[in-house]
């Protein structure tokens, strides 16, 4: 497979006929550190290698996310089964290694760490999550499944898609607007996922920058320690030379 050229934007969903990306399995496998599912757009960049250059408080904050997965204390086992699948679909986490999104959301809700506002037609964020679990099951049943967790992958995708478009109806959804529910829960999911250094590795983000700062601000420039994107190396040759595994397969 030829290396991908990211100067072109052909890989971006808006520019593709079905609005969906190609399989990320075409990317090299991450070689340094971890990315969710090991997709390696910046295969040799591990932001955690830079931790010596961060201030102590920030370092503690970030490492806590990697080193400890909070155990579930807010959600019941049944809720967690449903919502875990839901979070994985929203973030397209189809295999390990996974960022433990639901556990991170659970920890915030358990600690009552809310965002400072609530839509008038919505319950408290904590209650919204619980009702979401009930509502996902209800929507799956409308497709003939027993519940959301037991539904086929196709039905699960359709339910999440309908939620994102605000098109769920009946039971919970007649009382709790799906479009606002989507805003509330996606906000929590994205904050968890993109606060995790594994996600920073995947997107090539420079991460914490105090006290070092940034010096190379121009177009196409990066700091000496920032990761190079995959296309600058031929992933096939490169992995062969290193004796690493080839691109990850599901």
């Amino acid at each position: 497979m030829p290396p991908r050229d990211f100067r072109s934007a052909e890989h971006l969903p808006n520019l593709r006929p079905d609005q969906q990306p190609a399989s990320p399995d075409e990317l090299p496998r991450q070689r340094n550190g971890v990315t969710p599912q090991m997709h390696g757009r910046y295969p040799d960049y591990n932001v955690l290698d830079e931790a010596d250059h961060w201030d102590e408080v920030t370092r503690r904050t970030v490492f806590e996310r990697v080193e400890s997965t909070p155990s579930l204390r807010f959600f019941t086992r049944e809720e967690a089964a449903t919502l875990g699948i839901f979070c994985d679909l929203v973030m397209a986490q189809d295999r390990e290694p996974k960022i433990p999104v639901l556990n991170m959301v659970d920890a915030k809700l358990f600690a009552g760490q809310l965002d400072g506002f609530r839509y008038a037609e919505m319950p408290d964020d904590r209650e919204t999550w619980r009702r979401l679990a009930i509502g996902l099951d209800a929507a799956a049943r409308q497709h003939g499944a027993g519940d959301f967790a037991g539904a086929s992958g196709d039905v699960q995708m359709r339910v999440v898609d309908a939620l994102a478009k605000g098109e769920l109806h009946g039971e919970v959804w007649d009382e709790m607007p799906p479009s606002i529910t989507w805003k509330v829960v996606s906000r929590a999911i994205l904050s968890a996922f993109y606060s995790h250094p594994w996600a920073w590795n995947e997107i090539g983000f420079g991460g914490p920058a105090y006290p070092r700062g940034f010096a190379r601000l121009g177009v196409g420039q990066r700091e000496s320690w920032e990761g190079a994107p995959a296309f600058e190396r031929d992933p096939v040759k490169d992995t062969e030379q290193r004796g690493d595994e080839g691109p990850a397969r599901p």
């Binding site: 990211f6 934007a9 890989h11 971006l12 969903p13 609005q19 969906q20 990306p21 990320p24 990317l27 997709h39 757009r41 679909l89 929203v90 973030m91 397209a92 995708m157 999440v160 994102a164 996606s186 993109y194 996600a199 995947e202 997107i203 090539g204 983000f205 994107p229």
Partner: peptide, 15 residues
């Protein structure tokens, strides 16, 4: 965008 499309856009963040 959500799911795989969201992840693809985010991998493209630096552009």
């Amino acid at each position: 965008h959500w799911g795989a499309a969201l992840r693809e856009y985010m991998r493209d963040y630096n552009h």
